[in-house]
């Protein structure tokens, strides 16, 4: 099983990296780019699918992989 985790800055948190990406894309003429948010993506290779393992990965997302003060995460298993 694999876990695919996307971590993004919370909407209320200023994202200077995203601002820079948006501005540069605009300068380069890539069209109507209104906003960019820069986050990170993690892929975990896991053992056999069990509810316990899913819970542990969920917990890791909350306690270690993301910081709930400034980030949101989305976790998908496949």
């Amino acid at each position: 099983m694999k876990a695919k985790i996307t971590i993004t800055p919370k909407a209320a948190i200023l994202d200077p990296q995203g601002q820079q990406v948006q501005q540069t894309m605009e300068q380069l003429g890539y069209g109507d780019i209104r906003r960019a948010r820069v986050g990170k993506y993690l892929e975990l290779e896991l053992g056999d699918d069990t509810p316990e393992l899913r819970n542990q990965v969920q917990r890791a997302c909350r306690e270690f992989l993301s910081n709930p003060v400034i980030e949101d995460f989305q976790l998908d298993f496949e």
Partner: peptide
């Protein structure tokens, strides 16, 4: 200390980049 929860809040990238 913020990551450890001993202090509240967080430090993010400087506003001026």
């Amino acid at each position: 200390l913020c990551e450890a929860g001993l202090l509240p809040g967080a430090l993010v990238r400087n506003r001026g980049r």
